[in-house]
Design a protein around this nucleic acid. Structure first.
Lengths: 143, 143
DNA sequence: ACTTGACTCTATAGTAACTTCAGGGTGTTA
DNA sequence: TAACACCCTGAAGTTACTATAGAGTCAAGT
């Protein structure tokens, strides 16, 4: 099948597919006489795997690691479990960060309920006097 | 004061400060005879404001908007409230996404509790057969 | 045969908010 | 005068794509 068809099956754009090929996540397929990429069932499965990982917010690095582990069945899936546990940890961390953020934002928002001059706006005041915290080093890639 | 001192006060790097200047978030300061940037109290406050906004995960666009509104006190702070409400909305949205993500990841993780060959690994199987969903368009910049 | 339209190709640049690097100048201390 | 910490500029790298330009391919319609 051609790249457009594959894109439709995998719910992504053709540009994304070409990008994955350049990134070596997806192996380069055969070409037709007209130099069109020609995909088979193996490509469909591999791309679906990648897209599913991305839907779970894994990085290309994590996906590459999983794909590598997949090729060595004898190594067992301990490493896979580990990778997934780590990733769940990232998600947990980010959720905690965002909850704290929301609390700060909500507190800030409380400081101005009225339509006054911005000179007296409690929000602007809060943003100016707040103790700036050094951004904690991210252990996660989740924004 | 010189850039290094300012960076320490504001808990950021000197590169970040120079970047903000290039982005016009922070006004260009005076220079010493040796062409070193020379900052005053106004810069400290402005930079703290920016860093506090960033600590709350606002984009440069949102910060620029706030800084603009700050200069027009007579416009009142309705727009500021609105901007903050929107931002809180973004955070809420992202939290909801991540909670759903975590559920999916946890379910996936359940599929392999043992140390078996990866051929039989339920996680890899799950990632291959999962229904790929088209990524919903983001309304938020929070990753 | 010719044209239109939908598809494909490559290569390059843009996105956000920085970080890193290369190559050089300044200022204080020993 | 040499070492060392600090400052300067400009360009490139980061992530996972998205967008654009310019050109080739193919099937259907006139």
């Amino acid at each position: 099948m051609k790249i457009g068809e594959l894109a439709q099956i995998a719910q992504c754009t053709v540009e994304t597919i070409r990008y994955y090929e350049k990134e070596a996540l997806l192996p380069a397929p055969q070409r037709t006489a007209a130099n069109y990429r020609s995909y088979g069932q193996a490509h469909v499965e591999r791309l679906r795997f990648i897209r599913n990982c991305r839907a779970l917010d894994m990085t290309h690095g994590e996906i590459r690691a999983l794909l590598g582990l997949m090729e060595k069945p004898q190594d067992g899936c301990g490493a896979i479990n580990h990778l997934l546990d780590d990733h769940i940890g990232h998600v947990d961390e980010r959720i905690a960060e965002l909850l704290q953020l929301k609390q700060q934002l909500t507190a800030l928002r409380q400081q101005c309920q009225t339509e006054q001059s911005t000179d007296a706006c409690g929000i602007l005041h809060g943003l100016t006097v707040m103790e700036t915290e050094a951004k904690p080093k991210r252990h996660t890639h989740l924004g």
